[in-house]
């Protein structure tokens, strides 16, 4: 296998891109055509809630636009891949606004419970729903501790080409795999940089040289419901 040399290449590329264009791209390079996602990488997000303000919903709007999620005016059944949760500490009154989405667990319960294998984890750690074989049983929604998934409650039209979605199947945050695979940042991260305060940091958790890995090494972050032992790829600071 070419895993080792490829990894070296990736590391070099990452360092290079950081030097050449800091902030513009955090991904070493787009995966060449015909190559599958590799377990050498694990995509993750670090969210600093201290930088996230309650009135900013740039990430949420960007997600809805990017993924083509319509608003039917029915909040109980409309799909939400990403939402902002206001988290208040009753002990001291400190309030934080926390973006919550699929946590892309290393041991995802949604994948365990899915009867057909539609709920799946890609080699690079991205948890997806294969809607080609999803039968719409919603067991994954019962099993997810983060309430990260939605059910398409109505027939769809005008979907975005990169996010096919249809009535009767389950969906959720894809970590924008279509962007990651093309060497771009997830839509929420991009919007947070452009319009927000840059509270979201995206990168490869397995690459010790990546910005996210170095940030995590420098200062610890928490996982949501770490007690469940699911090892999510999303990390939070300031909760």
């Amino acid at each position: 296998m070419t895993g080792l040399s490829r990894r070296g290449l990736l590391l070099g590329g990452a360092a290079l891109s950081l030097v050449l264009a800091p902030g513009l791209t955090l991904i070493a390079q787009a995966r060449p055509a015909g190559r599958p996602a590799s377990a050498a990488q694990r995509w993750g997000l670090l969210i600093d809630t201290a930088k996230c303000t309650a009135d900013c919903t740039a990430c949420v709007s960007a997600c809805k636009t990017e993924m083509g999620l319509p608003d039917h005016g029915r909040p109980a059944t409309d799909a939400q891949y990403l939402r902002k949760v206001s988290v208040g500490n009753p002990a001291n009154g400190v309030e934080r606004s926390v973006p919550v989405m699929c946590q892309h667990c290393a041991k995802p319960p949604c994948v365990d419970v899915c009867p057909t294998g539609a709920s799946m984890k890609r080699a690079d750690g991205v948890v997806l729903v294969d809607r080609h074989i999803c039968i719409g049983c919603r067991y994954c929604m019962m099993a997810c501790p983060y309430k990260a998934r939605s059910f398409a409650h109505e027939a769809q039209s005008g979907q975005r080409p990169h996010n096919p979605r249809g009535k009767g199947t389950v969906e959720g945050c894809t970590l924008c795999v279509h962007r990651i695979d093309a060497d771009r940042l997830p839509a929420c991260v991009e919007a947070c940089r452009a319009q927000g305060k840059g509270a979201m940091l995206f990168g490869d958790l397995h690459d010790p040289q990546s910005e996210i890995a170095r940030a995590l090494a420098a200062q610890p972050a928490t996982r949501l419901r770490a007690d469940l032992g699911l090892d999510p790829a999303l990390r939070y600071r300031g909760i």
């Binding site: 909040p75 949760v85 988290v87 208040g88 009753p90 919550v100």
Partner: peptide, 16 residues
């Protein structure tokens, strides 16, 4: 679901 044990939570998605 209890995503943030011990905290008071609210969202547009029915959290809390």
């Amino acid at each position: 679901l209890n995503l943030f044990p011990g905290m008071a939570v609210a969202s547009s998605f029915g959290d809390g």
